[in-house]
Write a protein that binds this DNA or RNA. Structure first.
Lengths: 301, 301
DNA sequence: TCACATGTGAAAGATATTTTCAACCCCGGG
DNA sequence: CCCGGGGTTGAAAATATCTTTCACATGTGA
């Protein structure tokens, strides 16, 4: 099951830190040690051989190779090459490193700056970690779907509603379900040619997995948008779109950055679909824009 | 003679092509072949092993190693590492022209890059344009409010729901209204010490202005989150938080970037309030996190 | 044409990487 | 509390990769 992920993931260009964070939960203790070392000091690690890195992290060569594999490389050699590239990158980029946690006594101006920076980072990570092949497949499926059902609860429900709202605006038949029971009830109606989309950061939200499973069993094309590409939800997903996991602090719940990440993915999906259905999407967008204008005060200024 | 070059040259950063040119005259025929290949296609060569490169250049492994030495590296392995770094550098150099609008025929990868870039831009603009004094005042009002009502319709309603959801999670009494009639009905209940927040990108959405006016008239502290600080909605707002307006294209409706901007503002507001009510917010956050954990599949890994 | 100097690659030798496999550790059940 | 059992781990074997050696080829000037 898991081979699918390590298999389809491309060599991964620069978003290594993000990848480490995404995959960390599915790693064993020693693997995390290696991943941390690698993410923390790419340049230093690039200079080390397998044996060297194993020693430095207090683990074994085997573990190092295993970690490299999990991160999506064929072996350590390739990870090392990527590391060298990353190091060169950082060298030129000179990271601003404004990455302090938000503290209780931060002045409001700092909060704004840190939050904006964090969200920008999340966006960059998400974009870098998004598998465009999977995205393309998802877009293709959604573009030609008879109907599209979206499942999400909690914070993700808002993202789901956002997606459904936008798809509706370009003339597709989309619906966001927030009630798990109704979601399952409706999922039964789906069949081949329909699309079901589950949104869950943790990848293990039962209320969302269940309707996706039903949709899957009924032959619909299923898509999972999750931060845990190895989570249970992917069992029933034809296509997996990975969102990034940013570090959270006490004041900044994970939901916040995962939402940013999810919205970007959803937007990409939407734009992709709009491109593919341009003939119908463009007039529909224009029409809905027109309709909205009349709801506003005529004297806009 | 040659030791001079290999001796004084540091690992050689990126100016490899130049080095090749300088040293070419002192190279033998086969070595030049290797050097040319390396300078011409760093990325491609980085993927090759000694044997591979030897074959590709029609020479032998020994020659490849000799060339690496001449270029100043201890051995081929190190040359290869440098090559990988160089390749990454070149890669980053070619910007995908992300500043352009999203076109109908953009490949999916470009869509992702452009969208991520645009949203990052929106965040930066919003953070720069946000009046921290107004924000501070809004935070102060919300922190001590008896109850908080949030108004938003259309795309903004999701932002309002997001805010209310989060405020609820830290123990405040907040409610997001999407039905204009109910919103007005409830606004009548507000009085001094309560807070009403209106979210509207255009600043002239009647359905949102009306409840804010009622709340204002009843003595509540009113806050407007809008992209038009001169719009009608600000008439009834004690504090105005400005969101940024990014350019929109045919495929990318304004709602998309305004949403990003609104969410950042709302997040800042939330964090500010959480800081001010830390004593009660922290345990409440922990408790809600705890409660959620049990909804998930126990076997997270 | 021959002695000599230099360039070259095959193969041996040294390192590094990957795989295998048995010991280990933790966890849940009896 | 003890005892499997499944997953994790590292030592060492197996393999691949890199480096060195060395003998041969090639060309050059007397």
């Amino acid at each position: 099951m898991k081979e699918i992920f390590s298999g389809d993931s491309p060599p991964a260009p620069a978003a290594l830190a993000a990848k480490v964070r995404t995959l960390a939960p599915s790693m064993t203790r020693s693997m995390q040690l290696v991943a941390e070392a690698v993410a923390g000091d790419p340049a230093g690690c690039a200079a080390l051989t397998v044996t060297g890195l194993a020693e430095r992290t207090g683990t074994s060569e085997a573990t190092v190779v295993r970690t490299a594999r999990l991160l999506g490389y064929p072996g350590y050699r390739d990870l090392r090459l990527a590391l060298a590239g990353l190091a060169a990158h950082q060298e030129s980029g000179r990271a601003p490193a404004v990455t302090a946690d938000i503290a209780v006594d931060d002045p409001i101006a700092d909060v704004v700056a840190k939050l904006a920076y964090d969200e920008q980072q999340t966006l960059a990570d998400t974009a870098a970690g998004l598998d465009t092949v999977q995205l393309g497949a998802a877009v293709a499926a959604a573009s030609t779907a008879r109907r599209i059902d979206v499942y999400g609860v909690g914070a993700s429900s808002l993202v789901g509603q956002d997606l459904a709202q936008k798809l509706l605006r370009i003339g597709l038949i989309a619906h966001a379900h927030t009630d798990p029971h109704l979601a399952v009830t409706n999922a039964v109606q789906l069949r081949s040619g329909d699309v079901a989309i589950a949104i869950t950061h943790s990848g293990s939200t039962g209320d969302v997995i269940e309707p996706l499973r039903v949709a899957f069993d009924h032959g619909a094309t299923t898509i999972a948008i999750t931060g845990r590409p190895d989570g249970p939800v992917t069992q029933y997903a034809d296509h997996v779109l990975t969102t990034s996991t940013a570090r959270e602090s006490e004041l900044r719940p994970a939901a916040m950055s995962s939402r940013t990440s999810q919205l970007l993915v959803v937007d990409c999906l939407f734009i992709g679909v709009a491109q593919r259905t341009y003939e119908t999407a463009a007039p529909a967008l224009a029409a809905s824009y027109e309709a909205l204008a009349h709801r506003h005060n005529p004297r806009t200024r």
